[in-house]
């Protein structure tokens, strides 16, 4: 089976642009290799500052990698080829509170990607917005609402709606569940898995919560200080961690679960 998204030797050095402003600390990300297939979930775990969010930004095209390449459906994604990337790789931000514009209604927030990337007319756009809102478990009427009228869980759903409204093939989510309480979190997780099954999405997500990672992901990428220390199938990593760092993570997780029950 063909890979939906694959990344080869992706590298990024954190000293761009202003060469005269030579900064002391230098952060290097990569080289990173991975690939996912349609309907598969890849989880990226690691400590704070290990370059997880940076990797997400590289994937969606907010940052430009120094070397290496990203292939979508075996076609290389160039940095300037934004249109193609926007349509197929979408991002869900860590803090949905910040990523929704407070000054406009949810309807106009969701309409924006449609306006920019499709040729739908006004009516079709509204229909699409309502359909997407229903898909993520909100009401069509929510398009008249402002951000401040929603709860955190609902906001997360809107952020998700924004990601899937263009029918992408890959969704990159940067800790989408971090700000939610456990019950809403599990609702959102189930919603995501359902959507993934329905739409056949490839899903890359970044998380601290190993419980969720174990629950939904097929593959795991463990990162430490910008390097991939271990990667492989979820079951394998959880049962037979090889690297010292991964072992620590898994043991901490096991201890937490055993302590709870």
């Amino acid at each position: 089976m063909n890979d939906l998204l694959s990344v080869e030797n992706l590298r990024f050095d954190n000293c761009h642009g202003k060469r005269w402003q030579n900064k002391g600390s230098k952060f290097t990300l990569g080289p990173i290799n991975f690939s996912i297939q349609a309907g598969e979930t890849l989880a990226i775990v690691g400590a704070n500052g290990s370059g997880k969010s940076l990797l997400a930004k590289l994937l969606v095209g907010l940052e430009q990698p120094d070397s290496g390449s990203i292939y979508l459906n075996e076609r290389k994604l160039e940095h300037y080829d934004n249109k193609h990337r926007v349509l197929n790789i979408r991002m869900v931000f860590q803090n949905s509170n910040e990523s929704l514009n407070p000054g406009i209604t949810l309807g106009s927030i969701l309409e924006e990607p449609l306006k920019l990337n499709t040729r739908l007319d006004n009516q079709a756009r509204i229909a699409k917005v309502e359909q997407t809102l229903k898909l993520v478990g909100l009401l069509p009427e929510h398009r008249f609402f402002y951000r401040h009228m929603l709860s955190d869980g609902q906001r997360q759903r809107v952020a998700l709606a924004r990601a899937i409204i263009l029918n992408p093939q890959v969704i990159v989510a940067d800790e989408p569940f971090a700000a939610l309480d456990p019950s809403v979190r599990s609702q959102t997780v189930n919603l995501l898995m359902e959507l993934q099954r329905e739409l056949g999405l490839g899903f890359i997500f970044i998380s601290h919560n190993l419980g969720i990672v174990r629950h939904i992901s097929d593959k795991i990428l463990v990162m430490k200080q910008g390097k991939v220390v271990e990667s492989g199938k979820t079951d394998v990593i959880f049962h037979w961690p090889k690297d010292e760092y991964t072992k620590k993570l898994v043991h901490a997780h096991q201890a937490l679960i055993n302590g709870q029950s």
Binding site: V60, L62, K83, V86, M91, E98, E112, L116, R162
Partner: peptide, 12 residues
């Protein structure tokens, strides 16, 4: 703000 980032990702 992140919503501007999000708009950039919409291709704006």
């Amino acid at each position: 703000k992140e919503y501007v980032l999000a708009a950039q990702l919409d291709g704006a």
